[in-house]
């Protein structure tokens, strides 16, 4: 642990007073073992109370604090200063979403897209008295995809989405994977109808940005490719 002097450039925007976002620089002394969220808290609590950002669990599970730091989409809470090897930080909101204020973006459409793929078991069989039987290997198929925390880092990093805001995006498609490949689900056809569309799975151009941005290291592009295969099989 050592002392460090930080220069933190934050993209600020207040819809009530600013025509467009602008950069504001803060300098502060801190320890080198703190996280980006610690830095934001330090600024908000001690230097400038008007700074807005989202945060809650601070243990990388709630997905509130995804933002862009020195060019990368990260969760502020689990990202230590050390990974940037620099005392200059540039912090901005997740790209691709409308800014509400400062680092807070509008995720309503992001969540609405999730809803569009029917993110719940669709059952045509009867419900058993106890649990549906699902073998460990069947569970492992969906296990990693179920780890998604809906932070938005992937969808925000996707050039296909930047080019076309109607694209469902990697997070919603990953959720589609999680249900289509769930051995208990009977709704694959219904869901494939929804994603087998120019704004659905086919707008994924296998750029891999989503995978690199995912704080949970989920192999998103791989799962989306499996969806493409499934969609092709279904349409033949």
């Amino acid at each position: 642990m050592a002392k460090v002097k930080l220069n933190v450039k934050i993209l600020r925007y207040n819809p009530e007073t600013d025509k467009k976002p602008y950069w504001k620089v803060y300098t502060l002394d801190t320890e080198d073992d703190v996280t980006i969220l610690d830095v934001l808290n330090e600024i908000h609590w001690k230097i400038d109370g008007t700074l807005a950002y989202r945060r809650s669990c601070r243990s990388a599970i709630c997905g509130s604090c995804a933002m862009k730091v020195n060019g990368r989409n990260v969760l502020a809470c689990e990202t230590g200063l050390h990974i940037f090897k620099s005392s200059n930080l540039k912090i901005e909101p997740l790209p691709g979403f409308r800014i509400i204020k400062d680092l807070v973006v509008d995720l309503d459409e992001f969540f609405a897209k999730l809803e569009r793929i029917k993110p719940y078991l669709i059952l045509k069989k009867s419900i058993p008295d106890k649990e549906f039987r699902q073998l460990p290997e069947e569970f492992h198929k969906i296990e990693e995809s179920a780890m998604c925390i809906l932070c938005g880092a992937c969808t925000s990093s996707c050039p296909s989405l930047w080019a076309n805001e109607n694209y469902l995006g990697p997070a919603a498609l990953l959720k589609a994977y999680r249900f289509i490949f769930d051995s208990r689900d009977d709704g694959a056809e219904e869901r494939i109808d929804i994603i087998n569309d120019r704004n659905g799975i086919w707008r994924c151009h296998t750029i891999f940005n989503c995978m690199e941005a995912c704080p949970k290291k989920i192999k998103i592009t791989e799962y989306l490719s499996k969806l493409k295969v499934k969609a092709t099989e279904n349409s033949i």
Partner: peptide, 19 residues
């Protein structure tokens, strides 16, 4: 708990497919 499973919660499984 059974209801949660029936809702779709992805539980870890025993070898014979139970929760």
């Amino acid at each position: 708990t059974y209801e949660l499973e029936n809702f779709g919660v992805p539980f870890s499984r025993t070898e014979d497919g139970r929760i």
